[in-house]
Amino acid sequence: MDFAGAYSTDNLKFLLDGLYITLIVAFISIILSFVIGCIVGVIRYSAIPVLSPIMFVIVELIRNLPLLLIIFFIRFALPEVGIKLGLITAAIAALTIFEAAMIAEIVRGGLTSVDKGQIEAARSSGLTNFQTLWHIVLPQGLRRMVPPLVSQFISLLKDTSLAVVISLPELMHNANIVIGHGYSYAIPTLLLVALIYFSVNFLLSMLSRRLETKTV
């Protein structure tokens, strides 16, 4: 094990380059998957004929497949049917699709957990369906969704590492290249990378805990 060699300035800089890609891809995917997940979740909750069951089927299929498969499939199988996405676009698309399906379930669960009595009260006091959803159900449901949503975002950040399978130059991929330059770097590099992921995610969960105490 060669800690000094593994932690050379060049290698550290190279790992940080990887972290940058990881953060960018994760950030964009978090935003997109949150928006899409919310929309799909509300559709699932609202029991709209045809549309809701279709969403159910899509969400179930995606949730029950490995992300690794989805990433590889979007990058290298879809072009065979004419859908061609570049490296970063494919990574973002795959992460977004997968995590949006997860988030849709969280959103639906959060909305369902709102007390039925309140909805009836709101309806009988003259609010429309949409108004009830917007003013009564969403604000309460959202509060309950915060913890699972944050852990989903952390999952997403961790899951970017699976994009090594399509050679996305993110943190894990760059770590592999460093290890390739010297096997004695393997353990020191992996430990450092673990520390980096941990720090970023721990920071994220700390932030969310503060957010929670403020909103609740």
């Binding site: 399978v165 592999n176 290249i177 290890i179 390739g180 096997y183 393997a186």
Partner: peptide, 13 residues
């Protein structure tokens, strides 16, 4: 393995 680097790392391992 996915590439030669991983294969060589595995040989060394």
């Amino acid at each position: 393995f996915d590439n030669y680097q991983d294969a060589f790392s595995a040989l060394k391992a």
